[in-house]
Design a protein around this nucleic acid. Structure first.
Lengths: 341, 341
DNA sequence: TTGTACGCGTTATCAC
DNA sequence: GTGATAACGCGTACAA
């Protein structure tokens, strides 16, 4: 029969198995140090009682939690979904548990969540992008909590990161756009403030346009947060004036899909009347009609590598090695030649 | 200057503030019981040292964690994203932290994760759907951990749930399809085993067709997991035979989008050659061309209500009240009359 | 309003 | 191979 006690402890298991608590602990954590017979008896008692180790107590005694934390800007759209899923699966296979939370792109919330994860004894933390208050990094260093950045990579920055070069990627895409003959640009960027990925993507375009000698004062740039509806509204605004762009480059796929939808509603055809480009290579890029020309990012690989690297930082106490993944410009039907008019 | 000690404790704060540890604890947890002057001194010391309460210790002493756990089948596609995001935001505003993990639709992994959450002292747990081993429910009850089910609602089941009636919703959609004159059906269902939502959606169609007197032996049903690519392959298979369906009803939007894409590739036009329907009302339903006829589910509201209900179960120690949300059939261009041939 | 002292469940360091 | 025992950091009676 089951005992009356609702939550069995190590002690209860010990009594049931007729051994000392220490032995139970060993049987669970280093089975090699325990004889076969006691091992089976302990296991039986554990099952019998439905024992689960108390995490808080374990944390206090052992200082390790086998937990990795991750803070992403949002769970709602798909930008981070695939990467985080891969991250979590890889962690799982390494014996770690993932705690995810989302900051809604708010630095203050992010910092609060970092503290929460620290309190909970996260052995390591994954963060998105570089830009955040130095104080936040200081906190992590003081606490000796290994952290790894993802979704970005900057060769000139020494913080450990697994990601891709947002600026260079967008630069390459812009190259293709120019190659098709476009000279009248419209840009829909994500909010740049506090978001180095968005900032660098924008920079990639701007730099390339400068080199081309295009007057940036005549290039309308709208900043808005990553929602389909916002992409649509921004697109509408861009197409209002007299001197309409022949191509609208967007900071990510979500904005671009909004732009394409708006174009359709306005009776404009893509790419005949106007070309649209995105960034990320998430699923909707393939679903929208026409298919979206975008920069494809190896999300799953990034998640897996991040897991491997972060765990090795935790286990070997190493400083962490940065790793650059390569993005890939994907030309699709949403990008065509400008109409000669 | 900062102290040498890497991780400050309550004791350190107490010393810095010149008070006892108990007073610091009170200042943090029930400020009302502490004088203004000491309160400010304690706060100053906390900031100075960058103190964060040790979660494990707090858990052991207080038995509460202000943490809610949620286990969802997958993070990768958008089915759960919006609901969970709303759930988490609502929890946050109630002062709780959310721990999410995904089970990859595997009951064993789910059970393991429930135990993990229990170990970590989750005050309450959110699970998706009804169907799981009774042993799992026993475990939760023995541990006195309040749990709430979501994404499903069955009037005849006493487990607390916040969701919608998957069977009835699909039944209503099927009604509309029949009303347009369709009599040749193809069905692409999610994996039914261990997934009551998928099973009930299928049941909704089957029941309605039976009433209509349609011979179910002639209705091809393909079961496959929720991925776009799988929807496409299943669709291809359905359209292979001589006696092609005039409508393909899918177990969710992801499968349906795959079906539509496949139709396009096969040179079939939707809905002229074949109609397609989905379920969930996630974003891609609006992005695909033609727009997907589907059952729209109030995900955000479900998430918010689930948070409210679960927290009240935790705080008032109530049994939990079930709540049915209403889904809404949305007719869109992917569903039309069957071609008379 | 504040301080003292105990216990929460586990791991790790010793002995045996 | 196994058993005592001392931490770990916090909340909370209880006392002052």
């Amino acid at each position: 029969m089951t005992s009356i006690q609702p939550v069995p402890t190590l002690n209860d298991v010990a009594k049931a198995a007729g051994v000392s608590p220490a032995t139970v602990s060993r049987a669970l954590n280093s089975p090699a140090l325990v004889s076969q017979t006691t091992l089976t008896r302990v296991k039986a008692a554990v099952d019998e009682l439905g024992y689960t180790p108390n995490f808080g107590a374990r944390f206090m005694a052992a200082k390790r939690t086998m937990t990795i934390g991750a803070i992403i800007p949002t769970m709602e759209n798909a930008i981070f979904a695939r990467g985080i899923q891969a991250f979590q699966e890889q962690l799982h296979s390494l014996g770690y548990t993932l705690l995810v939370s989302s900051s809604s792109y708010d630095p203050d919330i992010e910092e609060e969540q970092i503290r929460t994860l620290a309190s909970r004894g996260a052995d390591g933390i994954l963060l998105i992008g570089y830009r955040r208050d130095e104080r936040t990094y200081d906190f992590l260093r003081r606490r000796n909590i290994p952290f790894l950045l993802a979704w970005a990579f900057a060769a000139n920055n020494s913080l450990p990161a697994v990601g891709f070069d947002n600026r260079a990627s967008m630069y390459r895409l812009c190259n293709e756009v120019l190659g098709l003959g476009h000279r009248k640009f419209g840009i829909i960027s994500g909010i740049v403030d506090g978001n180095d990925r968005a900032a660098n993507r924008l920079k990639g375009i701007v730099e390339r346009l400068k080199i081309e000698g295009i007057d940036l004062d005549n290039v309308p740039i709208i900043e808005t947060s990553y929602e389909i509806e916002n992409g649509a509204r921004a697109f509408e605004q861009l197409m209002e004036g007299d001197d309409k762009p022949t191509v609208v480059m967007c900071g990510n796929d979500v904005l671009a899909v909004g732009a394409i939808q708006c174009a359709t509603e306005m009776g404009l055809s893509v790419p005949e009347d106007v070309s649209v480009t995105g960034f990320d290579g998430i699923e909707i890029a393939n679903i929208v009609t026409p298919k979206l020309a975008t920069v494809h990012v190896p999300h799953a690989e990034m998640g897996r590598r991040a897991a491997d690297e972060l765990v090795s930082m935790v286990e070997q106490s190493t400083k962490g090695t940065s790793f650059e993944l390569h993005s890939h410009v994907r030309l699709e039907a949403s990008l065509g030649h400008p109409r000669n008019n």
